[in-house]
Design a protein around this nucleic acid. Structure first.
Length: 220
DNA sequence: GCCCAGGTGTTTC
DNA sequence: GAAACACATGGG
C-alpha cells in the first residue's frame, strides 16, 4: 500500500486542476442538464449549425425547422444541399452548413439512423464521423457525447478561453491534446463529460468575457 | 457600422 | 506544416 504522500506526488498536477475546476463549478452552478435539444437527431443538427455561430442563431434555425415540420431525418435527408440551404439561413454560413449537414444526413440514413450506430465502438464511430465532409473533432465529439452518450470530451472555444484565461493552458494546443488532457484526468463517464462541458459553457457565458479574472468568479 | 459567435476545409507561404 | 482565408447571419 503506497503512502498518501507517494500517491499524491504521482497524481499529475493537471489531473488535480481538472478535478478541482469541476468541483468548484458543480458546487456553484449545480447540474446543467445538457444539451439543449429534445432528441438525438436535434443534437446532431444543432452540432453542425453551431459551428462558428452563436447559440441563439442556431435556436432560430432549429425553431424554423420545427415549425415547418422538417426536423426529422426522413424529411431532411430527402433534400439536396441547395434545398437545405435556405432553411438554415438564420444560423449563418448556410451554404457551407447545408453541404455539411447533407453529408451527415446521408451517413445517418445509410446506417439506419442513430439506432444503427449503437453496436459500433466509440473509436470506430469517431473515425467514421471525422471522415465525413464538414465534421471536425468538436462536431464529432458533440454528437458522440450528447446524441450517442459516448465518453468523448468536447473541447470548444469556451474551453480554450476559460482555461487559458486562468493560465492553465496556452490556448494554442491542438484539439486532441486538450481532449486527452481532460480524458486522462477523468473517469470515462459520459454524464461527467456532459456536465463538465456544460458547466464550462455556463461559466464562459456569465464570467471571463473581458478580464482574465473577476473577483466573484467561481474559479478565482 | 463594427465585431463577434460552442468550426472546418482550402489555399498559400 | 503553420497561417491566412472563406463562409454569413443577427445580436451587442
Amino acid at each position: 500500500m503506497p503512502s498518501a504522500r507517494a500517491t499524491l506526488t504521482r497524481t499529475p498536477v493537471r489531473t488535480v486542476e481538472v478535478r478541482l475546476i469541476f468541483d468548484r463549478l458543480h458546487r456553484t452552478y449545480g447540474p446543467q442538464n445538457w444539451w439543449p435539444a429534445e432528441t438525438a437527431f436535434e443534437v446532431a443538427v444543432g452540432a453542425v449549425l453551431t459551428q462558428n455561430a452563436s447559440w441563439t442563431a442556431v435556436e432560430r434555425a432549429i425553431a424554423r425547422l420545427k415549425a415547418d415540420r422538417m426536423l426529422s431525418l426522413a424529411q431532411l435527408a430527402r433534400l439536396s444541399p441547395a434545398e437545405l440551404a435556405p432553411l438554415l439561413k438564420p444560423a449563418g454560413l448556410y451554404h457551407v452548413k447545408a453541404r455539411r449537414l447533407h453529408a451527415l444526413l446521408q451517413y445517418l440514413t445509410a446506417r439506419g439512423g442513430f439506432a444503427g450506430l449503437r453496436r459500433k465502438t466509440t473509436p470506430a464511430l469517431r473515425a467514421e464521423l471525422l471522415a465525413l465532409h464538414g465534421i471536425g473533432p468538436e462536431t464529432a465529439d458533440s454528437i458522440l457525447l450528447y446524441a450517442l452518450d459516448r465518453p468523448a470530451f468536447v473541447v470548444d472555444a469556451y474551453t480554450r478561453r476559460i482555461l487559458s484565461r486562468y493560465g492553465i493552458i496556452r490556448g494554442s494546443e491542438p484539439y486532441d491534446t486538450l481532449r486527452q488532457w481532460f480524458q486522462s484526468a477523468l473517469p470515462a463517464d459520459p454524464r461527467l463529460f456532459n456536465e463538465y462541458h456544460a458547466l464550462l459553457v455556463r461559466l464562459a457565458r456569465t464570467h471571463c468575457r473581458v478580464r482574465p479574472l473577476c473577483s466573484d468568479c467561481p474559479l478565482a
